[in-house]
Amino acid sequence: MKKLLILPLLLLLISCYNVERNCKDFKNGKFKFDYKVDGVNKTTVFERKDSIEIETFEGKTDTSSIRWVSDCEYVLQKVHPKNMAEKNAIVMKILTTSKNSYTFEFGIVGSDAKQRGTVEKISDGR
């Protein structure tokens, strides 16, 4: 009987949990994104200033425009795409934030396929 009373209380507590999202803290600054491609660690460093993002990957720099949909969601579009794939806009959604990092979901606009990652803020960009 006691177990039956604990279960609804536990479900009530879980449903009241709010994920922290201080997305405005990540609109500007310098960031690092570490990930693996075919078992090899890769790092992208990028700097974001409101409506522009400058990314450096393997010694190459690229610029994208940013259109903020909300405080936690934006669309990236390459300024100078080099091929058809780079012409596709990418939607980015910040899912959770902590003091110096955020977890996000991203994918091509209009596609249901999404990937997740975590970005670390390395400076405020000043």
Rank of each mutant, 00 (worst) to 15 (best):
Ile6Trp: 09
Ile6Pro: 01
Pro8Val: 09
Leu10Ser: 09
Ile14Arg: 03
Tyr17Met: 08
Val19Met: 10
Arg21Glu: 04
Asn22Pro: 01
Asn22Glu: 13
Cys23Trp: 03
Lys24Cys: 03
Asp25Ala: 15
Phe26Glu: 07
Gly29Glu: 06
Gly29Thr: 06
Lys30Val: 15
Phe31Gly: 05
Phe33Ala: 02
Phe33Ile: 05
Asp34His: 07
Val37Gln: 09
Gly39His: 09
Gly39Gln: 07
Asn41Arg: 07
Lys42Val: 05
Lys42Tyr: 11
Lys42Gly: 00
Phe46Tyr: 15
Glu47Thr: 15
Lys49Val: 12
Ser51Ile: 06
Glu53Tyr: 03
Ile54Gln: 06
Ile54Met: 05
Glu55Ser: 15
Thr56Trp: 05
Phe57Arg: 09
Glu58Pro: 00
Gly59Asp: 07
Lys60Leu: 10
Thr61Asn: 03
Ser65Val: 02
Ile66Lys: 05
Arg67Trp: 00
Arg67Thr: 13
Val69His: 02
Ser70Gly: 03
Ser70Gln: 06
Cys72Leu: 04
Glu73Ala: 12
Asn83Pro: 02
Asn83Gln: 04
Met84Lys: 13
Ala85Asp: 10
Ala85Gln: 10
Lys87Cys: 10
Lys87Glu: 15
Asn88His: 12
Met92Ile: 15
Leu95Met: 15
Thr96Tyr: 10
Thr97Arg: 07
Ser98Val: 04
Asn100Cys: 02
Tyr102Trp: 13
Gly107Cys: 06
Ala113Leu: 11
Gln115Ile: 09
Gln115Ser: 14
Thr118Cys: 05
Glu120His: 08
Lys121His: 06
Ile122His: 11
Ser123Thr: 13
Asp124Val: 00
Gly125Phe: 08
Arg126His: 11
